[in-house]
Amino acid sequence: MNEEKTPSKLEKILRAGHLAVTSECGPPRGSEAGHITKKAEMIRNHVDAVNITDNQTSVTRLCSLAACIHLKMMGLEPVLQMVTRDRNRIAIQSDILGAASFDIFNILCLSGDHQSFGDNPKGQNVFDLDSMQLIQTVRHMRDEGKFLGGDSIERPPRMFVGAAANPFADPFEIRVPRLAKKIAAGVEFIQTQCIYNVEKFELWLKLARERGLTEKIFILAGVTPFKSVGMAKYMKNRVPGMDVPDELVKRMSGVAKEKQPEEGLQICVETIQRLKEQKGVRGFHIMAIEWEEKVPEIVERSGLYPRPNVN
């Protein structure tokens, strides 16, 4: 797992054996780039790379690629999230080349939430490829230097290829086989769904370790701090594929309203500290939804600061 395949800083950090830290920024619902650069500025010294979501929850936003370019121009390391919901294989390959032309070196391959969740529920979806096939596509373009159609690519993309994994979705029995399948498709790093049920995550990780999967890829454990007990309940009851144990909801509701943000941060830091010790966890993906300003604090309190310098 030591041989670098791309100029990605995230890849370098992971291959050097450091615990990586990534975070994410959602682009604005308008064309004001300042929203995204401001968020990125808050976290630039505390994370190794920043994911830019791709029309998350199917709500139309400024495009992921353009936002990645803004970050790149600021000297940050973007992770281009790409969903297969909105693009066919022509658009996908074209956008990958576009990103590569700006030396965007990381991509996260996703299928994307169904459009019925977003602001255009009456729209078509594409799903020409699924997330596994998107992984295969990027690897094919990078490693073979070819388009899916077989023609050669001049200056192929050099992208470190990631995907998501949700250890908490059903059915649990295929969650590890599914990871194996993504690895077979060519994925190199994984960012997981937000982890609240730590025991279940550890079980998933143990099963992955037993199959030797954690030796083949870098798993970044996903965490999201609760801002309030309301958010904890929302995540528990409303977000598909999210597993929030009752104890955490109880813990959040056990403190006064003004102290709840601090309690949420504390839970997040405790989760990171516990998972740092787990073999197979190679970093953290901190998704502080509309709370990016707290990312530096989480990173520092979790003992993940300063970030390594690999260049």
């Binding site: 699924d130 997330s131 096939q133 059903d170 295929i174 598909p240």
Partner: peptide, 28 residues
């Protein structure tokens, strides 16, 4: 709902699809 040839996605919950609790998850 996403025509995933290599599913299920992360939205499969208790055998149902993320788009609607009445819709069975094909991959389940």
């Amino acid at each position: 709902a996403k025509r995933l040839l290599n599913g299920p996605c992360g939205g499969s919950s208790k055998g149902k699809c993320e788009i609607n609790k009445e819709v069975p998850c094909a991959w389940q």
